[in-house]
């Protein structure tokens, strides 16, 4: 249990995927202009990431490895992620129109979110068990959501402020992310 707790905490804060490992920066910079969209994107990503990591883990260990096709992992995982996104979109459309309306626009973007593929590959590279993979994926996605929401709130303020022309938009967002990343470095060493 302690081990799983450490994996969860490590993926969530200590090795935060956005601020310490540079995964998922496209949505982080692109769609955190408001708090609500940041939260919706984070939740949709969490859902896909957890499912994709578990599915890929199962396929890798029960299909690719026995058939000695491990080198196909990138191709297989990207198909799994794209397929899952499609299935979830169809399922939500049929069962929960409200949720579909909230998350609908953000779901297709998840396929090209490198955090999803990155976490899936990292879980395989670190030879985690199925349960540990699930915990790792949930922790990573929760960390992504946390940072998206914090940054979304911050950017709502930044959009209002009067900045020098050179810094308006992306540069100030990157600088703020740098300061946030500095704060997250405070978690380094916890649990090691």
């Amino acid at each position: 249990m302690t081990e799983l707790g450490l994996i969860l905490f490590g993926a969530l804060l200590v090795n935060n995927f956005v601020l310490a490992q540079f995964l998922g920066l496209c949505p982080f910079m692109g769609i955190t202009r408001s708090f609500d969209t940041a939260l919706a994107t984070g939740l949709a990503t969490t859902f896909v990431l957890a499912l994709a990591a578990v599915t890929s883990h199962t396929l890798y260990h029960h299909l690719l490895l026995p058939l000695q096709l491990a080198y196909l992992n990138i191709i297989v995982f990207i198909i799994v992620i794209a397929g899952l996104v499609q299935v979830i979109q169809l399922y939500l459309k049929a069962t929960s129109p409200v949720l579909h309306q909230v998350l609908g626009v953000y779901l297709p973007l998840i396929t090209s979110n490198c955090a999803v593929l990155g976490v899936t590959l990292l879980a395989i590279n670190q030879a985690l068990s199925l349960l540990a993979t699930f915990v790792f994926a949930v922790g990573a996605a929760a960390g992504f959501t946390l940072v998206m929401v914090l940054f979304g709130a911050l950017r709502e303020q930044l959009e209002q402020s009067n900045l020098p022309h050179a810094f308006a938009g992306t540069p100030i967002a990157l600088l703020s992310a740098g300061l946030m990343s500095l704060a997250f470095m405070g978690f380094q060493g916890i649990g090691s």
Partner: peptide, 16 residues
Amino acid sequence: PPGAFIIAGLAFALAQ
């Protein structure tokens, strides 16, 4: 990591 964000931010500001 913080250095990457900050230096890239300054570089983008220069480009802008």
